[in-house]
């Protein structure tokens, strides 16, 4: 085996390794899937009770949600936000 042959083999190995690396990197990027949940944070106007539930159609921040189970005050939606739960698939 002469120098030129060694160079050719080395070039082929480098190309194969680079291709494999780029494929592995792309796989890594797509494997992390994030699940999203929209949450409505419900609080009593007097601040003594707080609960969370999943967002329902028609919800908005400021919507009255009924009576506080603790003090009979007004329960209201105080925030709606998206939470991300990481799951590896």
């Amino acid at each position: 085996m002469n120098a030129l042959q060694i160079l050719q083999i080395a070039a082929i190995i480098v190309i194969v390794v680079l291709l494999a690396l780029s494929i592995v990197m792309a796989e890594k990027k797509t494997s992390k899937k994030k699940e999203k949940k929209t949450i409505a944070l419900i609080k009593c106007d007097k601040g003594d009770y707080e609960t969370k539930r999943e967002f329902k159609s028609g919800d908005f921040v400021g919507k009255v949600e009924g009576e506080c189970p603790k003090c009979k005050g007004v329960l209201r939606v105080y925030a709606i936000f998206v939470e991300e739960i990481e799951s590896h698939k």
Partner: peptide, 8 residues
């Protein structure tokens, strides 16, 4: 996009 917890 929909508001995140960090922003709230």
């Amino acid at each position: 996009q929909a508001m995140t917890k960090k922003i709230v």
